[in-house]
Amino acid sequence: MWIYALRRLILTIPILLGVTIICFLLVQIAPGDPIQSLLPPDASEADAAALRAYYGLDKPLAVQYVVWLGKVLTGDLGMSIQVDAPVAKEVGRAFANTITLALLAVALAFVVSMILGVIAAYKSGTWIDKLFTSVAVFGISVPTFWLGVVLVIIFAVELNWLPAAGMGNSGSENFSYWRWEDFKFAIMPMIALALPPLGIMTRTTRSSVEEVLGQDFVQTLRAKGLGEMAVLRHAVKNAMPQIVAMLGLQLGYLIGGSVLVEMVFNWPGTGYLLNKAILSRDLPVLQGTILVLAASFVMINLVIDLVQSMIDPRIKRS
């Protein structure tokens, strides 16, 4: 177990380094010269060169990368151009809000997909199976930002039950799942965000439970007179490692994939921040946000692999 965990941990380091390289290059591929935008139009070539030297932009790309990486490792993600604040602070605040939403969405997706997937697998081939599979296809195919708009149309515009956007008066610091005044702001974004993972997880649950139900030991369980509920419980337990792996992967995707939903609902998370950064071409914020999101996606995958190896000892050997 510990050897596996250590090996997996070491394998993560080059990936994280690669992620920083890509994030560094993101700013390099952006069109336009950052120095020109800082200088008055009548500035001389010598002024430009001096400023370039001041920011270290005259050095080779590799040197610039190492200097930048050194700052990143100490938690310095640079300064936002748009609002005069450190990027790390901005991203940190937004990240907490994204996590709040992603956890809700993944919990909803998990509960619903377990129910749909297990029933569909058990009733394989019947109309119930077909109905639930169709729900899954819908979830995978639906554009989340459109679903968000439709939810707003139904529940905010027409019915006036839920607030159309924002995070409520409590704001990010005091947001509580247990207070209706706060929670009602999260309902629609949560549903819009949950549908794609719900579709994917329903499929995974259905196929892995169906596969287990076809194995010999299930026949043995039935032969020894176990009730259907108990048989199903065994089947789900055996399908669990695969489902848990999928769950973690989806949580990771939600953290990165909530850009569009957050924009529709003005949810003040990383997606919203990213969108603002894109509109105002605030490249340090763009870079910092992407870096934090990708790094956390890598870390979630690491944790999932470790958890999976704990609940399923077969994995360690491969």
Partner: peptide, 8 residues
């Protein structure tokens, strides 16, 4: 590249 969710 797999370290990035596709949307991101």
């Amino acid at each position: 590249f797999f370290a990035f969710p596709s949307v991101l």
